[in-house]
Design a protein around this nucleic acid. Structure first.
Length: 464
RNA sequence: GGCGUCGUGGCCAAGUGGGAAGGCAAGGGUCUGCAAAACCCUGAUCACGGGUUCAAAUCCCGUCGACGCCUCCA
């Protein structure tokens, strides 16, 4: 039984899809006004793992991730750069997609954009006005929060409490300080679309509601995003969509925790961010994923060089389990092989149990390391490639559910042949006990990125 | 001020009533010509103080601390 933590109820609940065997999942993507940072990567990786796990469990997943491509910040930044806001968004979306690929994140089944959903946005706003949930004022349109009886149910807030906080902007157009914009009247020089209320553009929240409705229908299984979106964004989405359709919107609300850099949330507004591009220039995409897997997706995640180094070493360890049998392997005992296959079976089961419990990746990873150890023990006991194969296949399968690539480094070009030759020559030297010379070759190759591992009667090497 | 999450060995962290997973780092060992890799071994009064219970890291109350949201944010 798969259980997920639902922000709406603050409890873990059994996952029951609207339609058997299918999952409709909508995840809030970035607003494209500057380079995406590793916090965006974390969120994308979290929901990629969730999606992969659902697919592993046999569900057909519709995974929608939007791009917000019209918004104040995009316009401001485009003005600063002196470029067209749409061109800016376009190029950032292109970059983001490349990053997702480098991070081994499966492409969403749909990537709607605000600017391409304008018809649906306008229809929804009109519908909300018709039903009395929204009102036009001076070219703007606002949502009437007092009309939505359960406004605040996701974030656990009450309208009265929020007013007490007094950090709500005062706007004479609004009936209630917490009313929020569905449509914003255009200022001179801004991108604008025609509407019954004059030229303008959509507010931030309505686009997600409209895209959801358009791509997935009135009800969805899972709505996801960072926990900084719980209020006001997701709260407002619920208010809009449920007021419009008259029924429950998303059954399960899943939120990932924030990446912490130096004890603080990484964010664009704080400016303490590391872009995905900078990260990938230094580390493999698997490292970021490993970091996410080692923690709990709902909790804050520490991000620094120490934990990244640790993640990198952990990956090496998993890879050790995938390495081939010794060339001279004579075969392991039946007891050893039986222990290996038992461990593979147990690992598979324990993995599923962990992941079924609200995607407990840290637990799942622990079980995977048990299998790694069992494989390495069997290899040390002389298991042949054929004998290791079933367990290694299980290891591959489970790690790929988590989205790990686990690629061994390779060289481009013909270098391998020359390394083979050097290693061959070195083997001769070792036979003649020319240790000093052998060690020089080993050191120099290491400097070139080749790792040499000798055993009693054979030598193997690899990049990295 | 309001709402919420959390505090587990040097670091990251799983576990939410009855054995304190796992990874990284460190130390010791096996193997090796030496290394490396692999394997084995070594380590925790579970923030603090009360309470409930035969039994608490886990439930309840309190204290302290950290972080998030309440304004755009993954």
């Amino acid at each position: 039984m798969l259980r997920v933590y639902n922000t709406l109820t603050r409890k873990k609940e059994e996952f029951q899809p609207l339609e058997p065997g299918a999952v409709k999942m909508y995840v809030c993507g970035p607003t494209v006004y500057s380079d995406a940072h590793v916090g965006h990567a974390m969120s994308a990786i979290v929901f990629d793992i969730i999606r992969r796990y659902f697919e592993y469990r046999g569900y057909k997943v519709q995974h929608v991730m939007n791009f917000t491509d019209v918004d104040d910040k995009i316009i401001n930044r485009a003005n600063v750069l002196g470029v067209d806001p749409f061109a800016l968004g376009e190029s950032l979306i292109r970059d983001f997609r490349l990053h997702l690929d480098d991070l081994h994140i499966l492409p969403a089944t749909a990537n709607p954009r605000a600017t391409q959903t304008m018809k649906e946005i306008l229809a929804m706003i009109q519908g909300l006005i018709d039903k009395g949930y929204a009102y036009a004022a001076d070219g703007d349109v606002y949502f009437r929060v007092t009309k939505a009886a359960d406004y605040g149910k996701l974030s656990g807030r009450k309208l009265d409490d929020m007013q007490a906080g007094a950090r709500v902007e005062v706007d004479q157009h609004k009936e209630h300080p917490m009313d929020f914009a569905l449509w914003k009247a255009a200022k001179p020089g801004e991108p604008a679309w025609d509407s019954p209320w004059g030229k303008g553009r959509p507010g931030w929240h309505i686009e997600c509601s409209a895209m959801n409705l358009h791509e997935l229908g009135e009800q969805i299984d899972i709505h996801g995003g960072g926990n900084d979106l719980v209020f006001p964004h997701h709260e407002n989405e619920i208010a809009q969509t449920e007021s419009f359709t008259g029924q429950q919107f998303a059954r399960y609300w899943l939120h990932n925790g924030m990446l912490q850099l130096g004890g603080e949330k990484m964010s664009k507004s704080l400016g303490n961010l590391i872009t995905i591009k900078d990260f990938l220039a230094k580390r493999d995409g698997d490292v970021m994923r490993m970091l996410v897997l080692n923690g709990s997706y709902r909790a804050p995640l520490t991000f620094n060089d120490e934990v990244l180094d640790s993640a990198e070493q952990g990956l090496e360890r998993i890879k050790s389990g995938l390495r081939p049998a010794a060339p001279t392997a004579a075969g392991a005992s039946p007891e050893a092989l039986s222990a290996l296959s038992t461990q593979a079976k147990n690992t598979q089961q324990a993995f599923t149990e962990a992941m079924d419990d609200d995607f407990n990746t840290a637990g799942a990873l622990g079980h995977i390391f048990d299998l790694v150890r069992a494989i390495n023990t069997a290899r040390d006991a002389g298991a042949t490639g054929e004998q290791l194969q079933p367990a290694q296949k299980t290891l591959r399968e489970l790690t790929s559910v988590l989205g790990l690539r686990l690629a061994e480094k390779t060289s481009s070009g013909d270098a391998d042949k020359f390394v083979d030759l050097l290693v061959e020559v070195r083997t001769e030297m070792r036979k003649q006990k020319l240790w000093a010379l052998s060690d020089v070759i080993r050191d120099k190759l290491a400097a070139l990125g080749v790792t040499i591992e000798d055993s009693k009667d054979s030598t193997r090497w690899r990049w990295g």
